[in-house]
């Protein structure tokens, strides 16, 4: 019993060390999404191009696609753009843009300068649709399956590594699921 008491500080230290060590690698900046495996919330929003048409979830692809929350003010979005452009050129997966809390003019100018990787861009200038998606800042990226269910969410910049190691494996998985279901 006395020996056990002697080791009490060591035990306390060990317990604290384990918790704090784990704490070092916890990422508190990225919130777990509540929407995984839930249906993409409905919307009725303007499209950025070709013009002021209204779009709803019915206008989204009926194959797996990527939904990217972006804005012309958002620096990380600029970083993501070449990756998305390459994906569009190679016809890997449709990418839908949600122009989040931006102005149409600035957004169109940004696309003119940097290239437009989006097959469709919907305008969420008030951020109301963003709230439905649990978005708290661009860029955020969702992967939606062929049935319109959100299957994955990435918060923050998608760099080349995230694209290769996180996004594309999920996309391929969903695409093969879709092919099995279609055949």
């Amino acid at each position: 019993m006395k020996n056990l008491k002697l080791f009490l500080p060591v035990i306390v230290f060990a317990v604290l060390a384990v918790f704090m060590w784990r704490g070092l690698y916890l990422d508190s900046r990225t919130l777990p999404s509540m929407l995984i495996d839930r249906e993409l919330p409905n919307f009725e929003l303007r499209t950025l191009e070709p013009g002021d048409q209204l779009a709803t979830v019915e206008d989204l692809p009926d194959e797996p696609f990527i939904l990217n929350i972006w804005g012309s003010y958002c620096l990380p979005c600029l970083q993501e753009n070449p990756i998305f452009m390459a994906a569009r050129e190679q016809n890997l997966v449709p990418i839908i843009g949600v122009n989040y809390k931006d102005t149409d003019d600035a957004a169109r100018e940004w696309l003119d300068i940097n290239g437009n990787p989006f097959t469709l861009n919907i305008v969420d200038d008030t951020g109301r649709y963003g709230i439905d998606l649990g978005v708290y800042g661009a860029p955020e990226t969702f992967i939606v399956d062929a049935n319109g269910f959100i299957r994955y969410k990435h918060i923050g910049t998608i760099d080349y590594r995230a694209w290769q190691d996180e996004i594309m494996p999920v996309v391929r998985q969903l695409q093969s699921e879709n092919q099995v279901a279609g055949s």
């Binding site: 919130l31 809390k101 008030t126 951020g127 963003g130 649990g134 800042g137």
Partner: peptide, 20 residues
Amino acid sequence: CPMCQNANLSSSPGGVAADL
């Protein structure tokens, strides 16, 4: 506030806080 994580909605100047 989901963005500036150590503030509540009433004290946060963040964009999403204003929306909420």
